[in-house]
Design a binder for these strands. Sequence first.
DNA 1: CCGTATTGGAACAATCATGTTCCACTCGGG
DNA 2: CCCGAGTGGAACATGATTGTTCCAATACGG
Lengths: 188, 188
Amino acid sequence: MVDTQDTASRARTRQAIIDAAIAVLGKNLSAPLSEVATAADVGRTTLHRYYPERSDLLSAVRAESVLRLERATEHARLDEGTGAEALHRLCEEYFELGDVLSLVFGDPHCLEEVDRGQSGAEDRFKAVVERGHRDGSIDPELPATWLESVLWSQLYAAWSYVTDSGESRHHVLRLMLRTLAGAVSPPP
Amino acid sequence: MVDTQDTASRARTRQAIIDAAIAVLGKNLSAPLSEVATAADVGRTTLHRYYPERSDLLSAVRAESVLRLERATEHARLDEGTGAEALHRLCEEYFELGDVLSLVFGDPHCLEEVDRGQSGAEDRFKAVVERGHRDGSIDPELPATWLESVLWSQLYAAWSYVTDSGESRHHVLRLMLRTLAGAVSPPP
DNA sequence: CCGTATTGGAACAATCATGTTCCACTCGGG
DNA sequence: CCCGAGTGGAACATGATTGTTCCAATACGG
């Protein structure tokens, strides 16, 4: 924290470390730091230079995840169309985050962080669901908190399915959007 | 393995260890053995007496999980009614397994184990889904492998929701069965 | 081309989970 | 009541991960 300034070179290294950390720690949150270093194509010494303690790296990784989630949420334009349509777009955007999904899903602390970091993320989600309840696109018996769980678990399931079933991202995204649409829509 | 016999007392201790291990390792697969021992209300020494190495404990825990899954599967009477009804019953039964869900979901090795242990578990599941495709109760665009992912992720989400939202098991089960029913049924 | 910034490797201490051994305690069945 | 099965605690060795230090090599900008 001594110098907030990063030269171009340092910025690149720092980003490489974060990216590698998201990938490695996403698969296994208690993976050794040496693995992260290797994945980042960086010496373990260098890693410690940028993030002296493991917890520092974790904080940075969580912050980066929050950042990407915020951007994705913006892209989803949550206040347009029906509630269900908004959820649909939100899933499309989140799905693109790839490894971040595994990380956020596997790290209990991370979701709390998202709610604190992103101003009122939880409230915004709740608002979307309740709009869906009113406009008839979302089953009113399903509370926002439960749908949040469903959304995250499906995203995680879909991303895992991509990585270890070999199906194309696009195809799996279609599958997930279909099951999710069915899950939230009111029964006929 | 010297004596396959357990006295009543040893059997009780062994079971306490397994139960504690399922609970603790379900929350965190790389939790230290001392935590398992504490949760089982047993000395670390005793734990090592029953399961000399960590891998021995893991094997035993996986075996117990497979056993419980087998029993639950039997109770579900997979060959009765429509495919969707069979899935519905399967979820009800699996949901009762509680902590086992977290464990199986969090341990990649465990599901493979289930498939090897339980004779053709994967095939039986596939058969149910395909029956559902034919009888019109399950959307034919959703392959069995994807539905298996959805089922497990929803079970995990539901169980987590119970443990850290405080809602009653029964209520959450209802929520889950509703979202799952919507997810698998063909679109109107 | 020079000098500084950045890096990677080696060697080290500290910590923690694991696995082992030994011994004293106690609980329960005969 | 007594004896053995079962247990728990303490102490120890080991290996892996973490965090630190120092130094030589290299890359990069001026």
